[in-house]
Design a protein around this nucleic acid. Structure first.
Lengths: 113, 113
DNA sequence: CCAAGTACCTTGTATAACAAAGTACCTTTT
DNA sequence: AAAAGGTACTTTGTTATACAAGGTACTTGG
C-alpha cells in the first residue's frame, strides 16, 4: 500500500462520471476528451478510455458517428443520449453525497486562507 | 453497466481515506467504525473493513491493541501512527484536487437554492 | 511505395470491494 | 457444565476497473 496506488484507486470510479460529463457538454472525440481530462489533472491513458467509451455506448448512455478528419483516420464523435443525461444526473447526486460524506468524516481543522 | 454498480465503483478508493480519517480522530474499533461509515451513508460490510484494516496496519499507517470487552470477545482498538497522519494529509490533498477537478469538468447550471 | 503520425482496439495483470461462509471467544440460559 | 446465541474477527471466490503494453488500420508526405 503506497500513496500512488491509493491515489489511483481514488480516481477509479469517477472516470465514468467525468467522461460522461464531458460528452454531455457537446459532441467530442477521444483525443479531445483525453485533453480535457489531462487539463483537469485526471490522467488517463487511451487504453483505459476506449473500452470505457465502448461500455458507455453499449449501455446506451452515449452515441457516436464517424467523422472524416483533415489529417488522419476518421474519428468517432460522441454525444450523450437522453438515457445518458438521466444517468449523469443521478451520478451527480451520488457524487455530491459522497463529497458531503467525506467532509462529514474528515474534520478539517485548518481554515482556507 | 447499471447505476448501482457505478455508484459502488465511485465509492471504491475513498474507503481507505475515510477509515483512516475516522481512526485519526481517536482510538476506535471495527464495529464503531462501521457505525460511523453507515451514519455518513457510506455502506460497507465487515468483510470489506477487516482486510482493509489489516492492510493499513501492515503498511504501518495504524496500530492496534487488544482490549477486553464487557460483553463479548476482545476487540482490536486502532490508533493512527505518525506515518499514517502524513499519509492522510496527502490523501486529503489528493481528494481535494479530485473534487476540484470534477467541479471543473461538470459544469453545474443550477444554482443551489 | 514506404515511413510517420493519428485513431482506435485488445490482452494480460493488479487491486479492491463484495457476498458468503467460517472460526473463535464470551455471556447467558438451562 | 453443556448448549445456545451474540459479538468480533477472518478467509475464499467472484466481479469490475484501470493500467501497461502491444497491435491494427487509415491517412498523409516524401
Amino acid at each position: 500500500m503506497n500513496l500512488e496506488n491509493t491515489q489511483v484507486q481514488m480516481r477509479k470510479g469517477i472516470l465514468e462520471f467525468c467522461i460522461l460529463g464531458i460528452i454531455a457538454r457537446g459532441e467530442i472525440y477521444s483525443s479531445d476528451i483525453l485533453e480535457e481530462l489531462t487539463s483537469a489533472k485526471i490522467m488517463v491513458v487511451d487504453g483505459t478510455l476506449y473500452p470505457l467509451l465502448t461500455r458507455l455506448k453499449n449501455a446506451g448512455l452515449v452515441e457516436y458517428r464517424w467523422v472524416e478528419s483533415d489529417s488522419g483516420p476518421p474519428r468517432k464523435y460522441f454525444t450523450i443520449t437522453e438515457t445518458g443525461k438521466t444517468f449523469l444526473e443521478q451520478l451527480q447526486l451520488t457524487w455530491d453525497e459522497l463529497v458531503s460524506s467525506t467532509q462529514q468524516i474528515i474534520q478539517k481543522s485548518k481554515l482556507t486562507a
